[in-house]
Design a protein around this nucleic acid. Structure first.
Length: 259
DNA sequence: GAGTTTGAAACT
DNA sequence: CAGTTTCAAACTC
């Protein structure tokens, strides 16, 4: 078994162990106790194979999920800056190769070709991938930021760690490849706040991750709800009210039969 | 397309 | 850490 290490959108890499933990959390939310026992056995085998067949990570500092390494990030950003800037783009060409692609090449972990690689989930609600299929960067909708210089997580482009494009209608954009210092500072600040808050062990820049909605009025059935947008059922992580997007208790046997 | 509503992000 | 404000996207008309 060759378990692919997954990159996240901040340029860090989730280990197979980390992925397994996330999968287990999903399982804990989705299945009945009797179903979980069956899956636990399967997961135990899976985890054992991870431990046996996957070599130890070569560079833990690089692979650390939540650590922030300014020098490495700067290297990545510099590489990113080398890509065509917003001013040179036509809007039709593929957007710049993202920073984590470069990081992945620095590891010895086997990777899929970029074409087939599971790309980062789109960031903003408008940019969420509704069918959970791989998302081409060029499919990400442009932002319309007017006040944040595209340097906060409100900005879908910034959140996905990609430069704004000519299609964006943002004002005074600093995420255009010409303001790398500002971008780096913004990322650093977010990471620092993330570490202070420690609300979760997830990465703010990993937009594939869902850590629960807090919908109050829309019953989690409108585009405001991140779970709904992703065709995910709300889980115990959510703090929503009057939710109409909760999972239905179904037997795992039905799910297995489908497989 | 303008105005309103919404929930995430940021702030206090 | 709970409440408030700010923000950009979703939504409505």
């Amino acid at each position: 078994m060759n378990i692919q290490s997954q990159n996240n959108s901040a340029g860090y890499i989730s280990s197979p162990e980390h992925s397994w933990r996330k999968n287990k959390q999903v399982m804990d939310d989705e299945f009945e106790p009797q179903d979980k026992q069956m899956l636990d056995e399967t997961n135990s085998k899976f985890q054992s194979q991870c431990l046996i067949e996957d070599p130890p990570m070569q560079n833990e500092s690089v692979l650390s999920q939540n650590s922030f390494h300014y020098d490495e990030l700067q290297q990545m950003m510099q590489a990113e800056i080398l890509s065509p800037s917003k001013l040179l783009r036509t809007g039709n060409e593929p957007k710049s190769t993202l920073s984590f692609d470069i990081k992945l090449e620095q590891t010895s972990i086997q990777e899929e070709p970029i074409v087939n690689q599971r790309t980062r989930r789109k960031a903003s609600k408008a940019n969420y991938n509704v069918d959970d299929s791989p998302t081409m960067d060029s499919e990400i909708k442009p932002c319309h930021c007017s006040k944040t210089n595209c340097l906060q997580l409100y900005c879908s482009c910034f959140h996905n760690r990609r430069q704004c494009t000519q299609e964006c209608k943002c004002s005074e954009c600093f995420n255009d490849g010409q303001h790398s210092d500002e971008v780096l500072k913004a990322i650093e600040q977010i990471k620092i706040k993330e570490q202070r808050a420690s609300h979760h062990d997830l990465d703010s820049f990993d937009t594939r991750q869902v850590w629960g909605c807090k919908c109050k009025k829309t019953q989690c059935i409108k585009g405001y709800c991140e779970c709904f947008i992703r065709h995910k059922k709300c889980s115990s992580h959510c703090q929503c009210s009057n939710c109409q997007n909760k999972k239905q208790k179904t037997s795992i046997n039905k799910k297995i039969k489908k497989i």
